[in-house]
C-alpha cells in the first residue's frame, strides 16, 4: 500500500482511472439473462458487476401484506460476501436495509402498481462486485429487469452520481473517489417526466456546487438512459428477427 496521498485528478484534469471529469465509466448492460426470473438484467459499470431479478406480479406471501388497491413492491439490495476487499458478512447490514428502502422508493414512482391489486412484485438486486456507485447502477439495472418482466411503467428509471474530488465536480464516482472525495450526490431520474426519484448527498457542498452537481448527475443519467434503451432493444429486436 503506497502511503503517499495520491491525487484523484492529475494536472491535465484526468482522473485516477483515466476518465475526464464528465465521463461515465464504460458501461455494458444485458437484459433477460436469468431464465427463471420473470425479468432480469445485468450491468457492468466500470468494475461494478450487478444482477437484478424480478418475480411477479404474483401472489403475496405472507398474504396479510397484500394491498387491496395496488401491488406491493418489495426490494432487496444485497452485496455478495466476495464483492468487496474484505469479506462482507452475508447478513443484510444497516446500509443494505437503508438502500433497499430508498431503491424501492426510487423505482416505485415509475410503476403502475394500481394495475395489479393484491399482488406483489419482488425485486432482487445482487451486487456481485462493488466498486463505487452500486446503488445507482442497481437502480439502472433494476428498472430494466422490471421492464423485462413486462411490468407497465411511466418511464425507465436511471441513476447516476456526481461528486466533488480534489475541489472539482466529476461524474460517476468510483470506489476510491467516493471514499476520498469531498462529496457524493447520487440521483435517480425519470427523463421523460423530469422527475427525481432518489436524491441523497454526503460531504460538504455550497448551494451553487450542489446545483451544479445535480445538473452533472442529470447529464450522466441521460447518457445512461440511451444505453438502457439500447440494451432493451438488443434483447427484443433480436427476438423478433428470430421469429421471422
Amino acid at each position: 500500500m503506497p502511503k503517499k496521498e495520491e491525487k484523484l485528478i492529475n494536472k491535465d484534469g484526468i482522473r485516477s482511472d483515466g476518465r475526464k471529469s464528465n465521463e461515465l465509466r464504460p458501461t455494458k448492460i444485458i437484459v433477460g439473462n436469468l431464465p427463471n426470473a420473470d425479468g432480469s438484467a445485468y450491468i457492468e459499470q466500470g468494475k461494478n458487476k450487478i444482477l437484478a431479478g424480478v418475480y411477479g406480479p404474483h401472489e403475496v406471501h405472507p398474504k396479510h401484506l397484500a394491498l387491496p388497491d395496488r401491488s406491493l413492491l418489495r426490494c432487496r439490495y444485497h452485496m455478495a460476501p466476495f464483492s468487496v476487499d474484505e469479506r462482507k458478512s452475508p447478513a443484510p447490514s444497516r446500509r443494505e436495509h437503508e438502500l433497499s428502502k430508498i431503491i424501492r422508493q426510487a423505482l416505485e414512482p415509475a410503476i403502475f402498481l394500481k394495475y395489479y391489486p393484491r399482488t406483489s412484485i419482488d425485486l432482487f438486486i445482487e451486487v456481485l462486485q462493488a466498486h463505487g456507485g452500486t446503488r445507482c447502477a442497481g437502480i439502472t439495472v433494476a428498472s430494466l429487469a422490471l421492464a423485462d418482466a413486462g411490468i407497465p411503467m411511466r418511464d425507465l428509471t436511471v441513476a447516476c452520481a456526481a461528486g466533488k474530488i480534489d475541489g472539482q465536480l466529476v461524474l460517476d464516482l468510483n470506489d476510491i473517489e467516493d471514499k476520498k472525495g469531498e462529496a457524493d450526490v447520487p440521483l435517480a431520474y425519470m427523463p421523460n417526466l423530469n422527475a427525481v426519484t432518489l436524491l441523497q448527498m454526503d460531504g460538504q457542498l455550497t448551494l451553487g456546487e450542489f446545483e451544479d452537481a445535480v445538473r452533472l448527475s442529470l447529464e450522466g443519467c441521460k447518457k445512461l438512459y440511451n444505453i438502457q434503451k439500447e440494451a432493451l432493444r438488443a434483447k427484443y429486436v433480436s427476438k423478433m428477427e428470430d421469429e421471422e
Binding site: Q105, E108, V185, L199, M201, Q204, T206
Partner: peptide, 13 residues
C-alpha cells in the same frame, strides 16, 4: 453548506 440530503417516500421531485 449542505452536508447531507435524503429523499424519501414513493413520489418524486
Amino acid at each position: 453548506k449542505i452536508c447531507a440530503i435524503q429523499k424519501g417516500g414513493s413520489g418524486y421531485f
